[in-house]
Simulated assay, not measured.
Amino acid sequence: MKKKKILLFTLTFLVLILALEVGSASAEDVTWNPNDKGAAIVLSNGNLTAVYNNSNGSNVRASEGKTQGKWYWEIKVDSANSDAAVNLGVAHPLQSISTDIYPNFNNQGFLARFYPQNTGDIYGFSLDMDSKILQISKNNTLVATKSSVAGEVRPILGDNNTNSSASYTANFGATPFVYSVPTGYQPYDGSQQKTQAPTNLAATSGDAQVTLSWIAVTDATSYKIKRAATAGGPYNEIEANIKDTSYKDTRLTNDKKYFYVVSAVSSSDESVNSTEVSATPKAASNTGNGTLIVTFENAPDKVLSISMAQIEEFISWYNDPSRVGNAYMIKSPDTGLFKSIKYYLVFDKIVAWEVRQY
């Protein structure tokens, strides 16, 4: 009887250990597959950087494939000599990639050849397996489209059999992308992203400044602010280690449009970028205060005693057909217990508004 109890305890303990191991296991990040490449390609940087030198048509395929969903990834040109050309796209898992496959690729996926290249070029890939379409962009400009992409496919990279040398680094989503992820898409290995991107990012323009605000991210210890001169990027990081959920970007040029994204940083990783917002600083043409009366659909009117500069910012947002977001935040002084109150005005619910200056 005693032996049975010991045996039962031992089995229970082993099952518990196994359950803990299974529960704590996590899928590996997507990388280039070291077991699925031509011999002349050398991988480094956690199998994300692929280098070929006189490789005579070698290729490398990613470690994970997709059969459904909408996915995005980027590949950066680290270096390339004047003769280097690159084949980029997707391939089926069983397609032979040991030699230059570009001329005879047929229906085994899709490859596009790019030449010439510059160090720092960014290739972006938008793979829609639900609609069976792959789009490739170079520096945020669409350069290739392929329809009828079916079955399981995986990202692929290779040279063009020209005895050239080059280095490329893939980002499947483990770190923030250079350009915005297209709406409806997610990072190729997005399931690995632990920290969520900030949501409800809003931009309010002022005189030579833009104020950003967003919803706090659980487990985030800080935020990074990134700005671009054109929609979609590339973004330059202008501030890091922001502890609050708002940021004021100052010393800007009035009447110039700026584009912003924010990422969240935790102890484990950095999120992908938030949805992009934009704002155009305007010189204050009115001083003093006024009253903004907003009439809503099926709701009481809102009467706000605020500065004329704030009122002008609201009018600019309301009249902007390219506005990002459906709500506008106004910070108003409070006559009660609080220093100020934030009001969120929803565009679709506004019936009319009136301004009274004094």
Rank of each mutant, 00 (worst) to 15 (best):
233 G>D: 09
269 D>S: 11
241 N>G: 06
287 T>M: 09
250 T>D: 12
229 A>M: 10
274 S>R: 05
266 S>Q: 09
248 K>T: 15
283 A>Y: 07
275 T>W: 00
232 G>Q: 09
262 V>H: 00
231 A>T: 14
248 K>C: 07
250 T>V: 12
245 T>R: 08
268 S>R: 11
229 A>R: 07
259 F>N: 03
279 A>G: 07
284 A>D: 14
264 A>H: 02
274 S>V: 04
252 L>C: 05
280 T>E: 12
278 S>N: 14
247 Y>H: 03
261 V>L: 07
258 Y>P: 03
265 V>H: 00
244 D>E: 15
270 E>K: 01
232 G>V: 09
246 S>K: 11
253 T>V: 13
255 D>S: 15
277 V>S: 04
273 N>H: 05
285 S>E: 13
280 T>W: 04
283 A>C: 04
255 D>H: 11
251 R>S: 15
273 N>K: 03
283 A>I: 11
278 S>F: 11
249 D>I: 06
259 F>S: 03
273 N>V: 00
249 D>V: 07
262 V>W: 00
287 T>K: 11
259 F>L: 08
248 K>P: 01
259 F>W: 14
260 Y>G: 01
251 R>D: 15
231 A>K: 15
229 A>I: 07
255 D>N: 15
278 S>P: 04
260 Y>H: 04
256 K>G: 05
278 S>M: 11
266 S>D: 13
259 F>I: 03
274 S>H: 02
273 N>Y: 03
243 K>T: 15
234 P>F: 02
240 A>I: 11
246 S>D: 15
239 E>M: 05
233 G>F: 03
244 D>G: 02
285 S>M: 10
284 A>R: 08
249 D>Q: 06
236 N>T: 10
280 T>G: 08
279 A>C: 09
256 K>C: 07
280 T>M: 10
255 D>L: 13
261 V>M: 09
255 D>R: 12
239 E>N: 08
272 V>G: 11
246 S>T: 12
257 K>F: 01
257 K>V: 13
286 N>T: 11
235 Y>T: 05
286 N>R: 14
259 F>H: 10
265 V>N: 02
234 P>V: 02
267 S>F: 08
252 L>T: 04
267 S>C: 08
249 D>H: 04
279 A>N: 07
262 V>M: 01
272 V>R: 08
287 T>Q: 12
274 S>P: 01
247 Y>W: 07
270 E>I: 03
239 E>F: 01
248 K>M: 10
252 L>F: 05
279 A>H: 04
260 Y>L: 06
237 E>S: 06
263 S>R: 02
241 N>L: 10
277 V>A: 05
257 K>W: 02
263 S>W: 01
233 G>H: 05
262 V>Q: 00
249 D>C: 04
281 P>Q: 08
265 V>R: 00
